[in-house]
Design a protein around this nucleic acid. Structure first.
Lengths: 138, 138
DNA sequence: ACCTCGATTTAGACTCGTTCTAACTCCTGC
DNA sequence: GCAGGAGTTAGAACGAGTCTAAATCGAGGT
C-alpha cells in the first residue's frame, strides 16, 4: 500500500496537502508500521527540517479523526499510529520491549457480551490484545 | 470480599503492614471498585492525613507486583487499580466518560493465535476490552 | 496583481500522571 | 540499646500530549 493512495484519499476529501502534512503522511507508509508521534516527528523532519512537534500532533489527530489512520493505545508507552486505519485487526504486544504486531485472530466475531453483563451499554467495538514475550526478550 | 482477607494474605506474605499501607489497602475494597492512584490517595488521606502521594504509588505498585491487585490500563486516562486481582476477567469501557465495568465474556477461552501469526512470541495472556457508550452518555 | 480573512504552523508554556531522588524516620534483629 | 535496612516523605523531574497566542500562508474575490 504505497503513499499515493493515502495522499489521493486525502485530496479527494479536499484536505489541504501542505508540505508539512505530506511529510507526516509519508512516514506512515508500509506494512506493520506502528510509529509513535515522536518517531513520526523525527522522521518527518528529515523531509521537512522545520516542522514542529505541534504540527505533527495536529496532523496525526486529524488523520485519526478522519479515520484514515488508526491509533493503537499501547497499554504502556505512547500512542502508536497505524496507517492501516480501515482494516479491523488486533494486536500482539511484547511485555518486555513493547514491540507490536497486527494479528488477525480467529473467533473474535464470536465474542459477545451476554445482555445481563452489558450494564446498560451500547457495545460498539471489541479490542483484543495478546500479550507475551517476543523472540528476543527473555 | 471484605478487607480482612486481603490484609491477611499480605500478612501471610510477611509483608509489613504499616498504617500507610493499611490505609491504601482499605480503599481497595468492594465489588466493581476501580480507583485511580489519585482517588486512592485522597481516600487514604481521610484515614491517614499525612500519607504522601509517593507512598500510595509505591504501595499500589507493590500490590500489583505481588499479584494481589490488578491494574487496568484504561486506554485513555490514568491506570485503575482493581482489588479483584486474581480473577480472570475482562472490561467494558465507556468511550464517553471512561466508566469501567468488569465482565465475564463467553468464548474468550476459544481465542487463540494461529501459529503462523505468533511472530515468534510466547503468548501469555489475552485481554479483551469491549467499548461502547454507557446509559448516560449520548 | 493585490487584498483579506480564515486556515495552518510555530515555539514554548502548560497539564497530567507517574517516577525519581535524597533526606528522614521508624522498626527489627542482634 | 544500637546499627542498618525498610519504609516514608516532599518536591523535583519526567514523558507524552495539549494549549496558546502570535506569525505566516494561500485561495477567492476584486
Amino acid at each position: 500500500m504505497p503513499v499515493a493512495p493515502l495522499i489521493e484519499r486525502l485530496e479527494a476529501r479536499r484536505w489541504r496537502i501542505t508540505p508539512q502534512r505530506r511529510a507526516v503522511a509519508e512516514t506512515l507508509v508500509g506494512e506493520h508500521v506502528h510509529l509513535s508521534a515522536d518517531e513520526v516527528f523525527s522522521r518527518a523532519r528529515t523531509g521537512f527540517p522545520d516542522i514542529s512537534r505541534a504540527t505533527v500532533y495536529n496532523t496525526l489527530n486529524e488523520l485519526v479523526a478522519m479515520g484514515e489512520v488508526g491509533e493503537v493505545r499501547s497499554p504502556t508507552g505512547p500512542v502508536l499510529y497505524d496507517p492501516n486505519g480501515t482494516d479491523r485487526h488486533h494486536h500482539l504486544v511484547c511485555t518486555g520491549c513493547g514491540t507490536l504486531f497486527d494479528v488477525r485472530p480467529e473467533g473474535v466475531d464470536a465474542l459477545h457480551l451476554a445482555p445481563g453483563q452489558r450494564h446498560g451499554f451500547r457495545v460498539e467495538d471489541v479490542e483484543v490484545v495478546f500479550r507475551g514475550r517476543c523472540g528476543t526478550c527473555p
